[in-house]
Amino acid sequence: MYKKTILLVDDEPNTRRGITKTLESWSEGRFSILSAENGREALDYAKQYRIHLLVTDISMPEMDGLELLRSLKAEQQSLVAVVLSAYSEFDYAQEALRLGVVNYLLKPASKRMLIEAVEEALQIEEERTKVKTITRIADARLMDVQEKTLAAGPVKQAMHYIDQHIEHPLSLKEVAEHVHLNPNYFSMLFKEQANMTFSEYVTRARLQEAKSLLIKTNLSIEEVAERVGYSTSKYFIKIFKEFEGITPSKYKKVK
């Protein structure tokens, strides 16, 4: 599993070193800790790495913390942020909250307060990531069909069988035999109850599993294709692009 990245931004060298040391000690190698001395340098990091948590000072030369947050938001960076500030003015805090900051700490913050704020922010980031992942993976039509199809019966049994054997060829004849129905009757019944053909259901189920593997694993496109029942990656890529509008490799790179 890759490490999540925490980026600290503070123009005061001693503060930056102290907080970095605190975070590295707390992290025990679980997270990558980066530090930048201003907003410009932080933006450069954001272009090179996926930043999961930003811990930033407000008052900095060249680009302050709020400007940095606005720039990251404009670039659609889906990170969470904790703000450090020597200022307690309401306007600062209010603007920070509008920009999605999950905690606002006044300097000097104790190690305990800093770590608690970081842990809380990472929990929020984890939950947001889960929701985003589910949203990206889920095929709305497939989910609707699975929810609305009768709780019991041959079509529901067939769906379960397909989902459990997604890596296999899965012919209509094979699945019909599994639920003890004539293939022609099974095909008609499936389309009537699922409001989609057997073939479309199998394709959507394969692609939903493929999206999950692309996001959650480091498997190659060829390996993903094989895991979801496609004999060639070329055909898998063609079908994926037809349904998703982009290739599997580009889908995998989307943050």
Rank of each mutant, 00 (worst) to 15 (best):
T129S: 11
A109C: 13
T149S: 04
Y161F: 15
P169D: 01
N103D: 15
M113N: 13
L114W: 04
K156G: 00
R141H: 08
D163K: 10
V102P: 12
E167Y: 05
D144R: 10
L114G: 04
A138N: 02
T149Y: 06
T129H: 03
D144M: 09
T149I: 15
A109P: 11
V131C: 06
K148P: 03
V102N: 07
G153Q: 08
D163E: 15
A117Y: 00
I134Y: 13
V145P: 09
A158V: 08
S171N: 03
R112C: 04
I134H: 12
V118C: 04
E116Y: 10
L170A: 01
I124C: 06
E174K: 13
I137Q: 07
A117P: 04
E147H: 09
H160D: 11
N103E: 14
V155D: 07
K130M: 01
T149D: 07
V118R: 00
H160E: 15
A152V: 10
L142Y: 07
A109D: 05
I166E: 00
S171V: 08
E167H: 15
E119F: 00
L99C: 04
L99P: 01
A117N: 06
E167F: 11
E167C: 06
Q164Y: 11
H168A: 13
H165T: 14
L170V: 05
T133A: 08
A121S: 02
I124H: 08
E167A: 14
P108N: 03
L150K: 12
S110N: 07
P169H: 09
K156N: 13
E147M: 11
H168W: 11
Q157V: 03
I162L: 14
A121C: 04
A117D: 02
K132G: 05
I124Y: 08
R141Q: 14
H168S: 11
L142N: 00
D139R: 06
S171W: 06
V102Q: 13
V118T: 13
L150G: 10
L122E: 02
L106W: 00
T133C: 01
A152G: 05
I137P: 12
V155W: 06
V145L: 14
Y104W: 07
L150Q: 10
Q164S: 13
I124E: 09
N103W: 03
M113C: 04
E125W: 12
K130S: 01
L99R: 03
R141N: 13
S110I: 01
L172P: 02
E167V: 02
I166R: 07
N103H: 15
M143W: 11
A152W: 07
H165L: 09
I162R: 04
A117T: 06
L105M: 11
K132F: 09
E119L: 00
S171P: 04
E120Y: 10
N103R: 15
H168L: 15
L105Q: 09
A121F: 01
K148Y: 09
T149K: 00
Q164A: 11
E127L: 13
D163V: 03
N103L: 01
V118G: 02
V155K: 12
V145M: 15
G153C: 07
I134F: 08
K132Q: 14
E127Q: 11
L105G: 05
D139L: 08
E116W: 07
L122D: 03
E119T: 09
